[in-house]
Design a binder for these strands. Sequence first.
DNA 1: CTGTTGATCTGCT
DNA 2: GCAGATCAACAGT
Length: 188
Amino acid sequence: MLSILTSDFYQRDTAIVAKDLIGKKLIRTLNGSLVGGIITETEAYGYSNDPASHAYRGKTLRNSAMFGPVGHAYIYFIYGNHFCFNIVARSKDQLAGAVLIRSILPTDGIESMLFRRNKITNKDLTNGPGKLSQALGITKELNTISLHHNEQLYVVEDTVVFSELIQETERIGISKGKDLLWRFLAKI
DNA sequence: CTGTTGATCTGCT
DNA sequence: GCAGATCAACAGT
C-alpha cells in the first residue's frame, strides 16, 4: 500500500525534502480518474538565505503560501503563460521555503495528459514546470491547498532512489543564488 | 502609477 | 540557438 507523505516529511530542511522527493509519485485526480507520474527533477527555494527565492524579501500577497503550513501547495503564474507548482517545505527554524517540481515521468492517465497538452510528443509531455502543470491541470485555484488530506492532489511513496543516483546542480532560469546547488535530478 | 522582469515554452532558423 | 508570447507582481519613483 502506497502511503501519502505526511507533514513530518515536509517539516525538514527544504533542500533535503527536495532531494527526497525524487522517486516519489505525484498524483492528481481529474474527473474521477488518476493522472500523474514519478518525480524526477526538483529545486529548493529558501527564505532570506536565498536571493533567488520569491520569499527572499519577506512575505507578500503572491508568496504567502511559502510562509504557510508545510505540505501545502504554492502555485504561481509566470511569464504570462505558465503555472509553476511547488510544495511548501522547511525546517522549524525557517519562516519560508518550498520545493519546485520541475519534471515528472508520466505513468498514469497519459491519454488525459496528451489531450490537455494538445498533441505534444511523449518526450515533452511533462519535462518542465509549466508543462507538467498543464498536463495535470494544475492552476492557481489549487494554491495553498493541503496535499495530506486532499483527494485532488497528493504525493505518495513510490520508488526508492539511492542518493548517489541523484545529481545536484545549480538551479535553472535564475539570475541570483547560482552558487547554491539546489537542483536535484534523477540520473537515468 | 509606471516600468521592468521573470523558478517558461514553443516554433522558427 | 534565439526571439516572441504574454501578464501579474513587484520595486522604485
